[in-house]
Structures are given as structure tokens and as C-alpha cells.
Amino acid sequence: MKLPMDDEHAALFTVGQVADMLQVRQAFLRRIDDHQVVSPQRSPGGQRRYSRHEVGRIQQVVTMMDEGMTLPAIRRIIELQHELAELTRERDELARRLDALGEGGGPR
């Protein structure tokens, strides 16, 4: 049985918990959500709930801001990282299909 703590995308943490974990202000977390840099899930009551994956992403944002990057630049970097991951998955799937066709003993 898979527990919620085992799922890095399970929304487990409140704004206050994440702020304490990462030593950032709650207003900072709300700001990066408003700028669509890291947007957590919402509880049925509308409160932000963060997953371990999102906490890791926030750590990246803090590091990039410490290096002098703006939130729009950080959002674009994150978008490009996501696009690159998608393209890599597609490439790997196509390579797997080509390998399977080659192993099928088709015409050469």
C-alpha cells in the first residue's frame, strides 16, 4: 500500500509548515504562487497545500533569487526545464520504439 508520504506529489504541507522548513516568509510563498512560479494545490477550504516536489521547487526558486534572478526569469527557466523533460521523455520513447522495430527482424 502506498502512503501519502511516499508520493512526492501528495499535497501534505501548509504554507506555515513550508515557510518554517525553508526559513522563508509566508508572503513569499503567496507571491511566488501569484507569479505562477510555484502554484500548490488547494485544500477543499481553499488553503494552499504543498507537495515534497513543490517544496524542492521552492528551494530552487530561493537559490535562483539569491543569485539575483527575477521571478519572471525563474518562471521561464522552470517552464523550459519542464519542456526539456517532456522532449527527453518523447525522445526516449521514440528510441525505444525504433529499437523494438529493429529487433523485430523487419527488412534491412
Rank of each mutant, 00 (worst) to 15 (best):
A11P: 11
L94V: 07
G104A: 09
D7N: 12
R42Q: 08
R25H: 02
I32T: 01
P72S: 12
R49K: 12
R48N: 09
A27Q: 15
R57C: 12
G102I: 00
M21Q: 09
G104Q: 07
G16I: 01
G56M: 08
R52D: 15
K2C: 01
H35K: 10
E90Y: 03
D20F: 13
T88G: 03
R96T: 10
E83I: 10
Q26P: 11
V55D: 14
A73Y: 00
Q47V: 02
R96K: 02
M21I: 11
I78D: 15
V37T: 00
H35E: 10
Q36S: 03
V38T: 04
G105A: 01
D6V: 04
G105P: 00
G16L: 08
I58Y: 05
T14K: 12
E8P: 10
V55W: 11
D66V: 01
T70H: 07
E93S: 02
L3C: 10
H9L: 05
Q41D: 04
A85Y: 12
D34A: 10
G102K: 07
L87M: 08
Q17K: 08
Q26G: 11
A10C: 06
T14A: 14
R57L: 13
Q59P: 00
L87P: 05
R89P: 13
R57A: 14
A11C: 14
R52S: 15
T14Q: 15
A73P: 00
R49V: 09
R48Q: 11
L84P: 11
D33C: 04
D66M: 04
G68R: 01
M5C: 14
T14R: 15
H9P: 02
M1A: 04
R42K: 12
I77K: 07
G105R: 02
E54Y: 12
L98H: 01
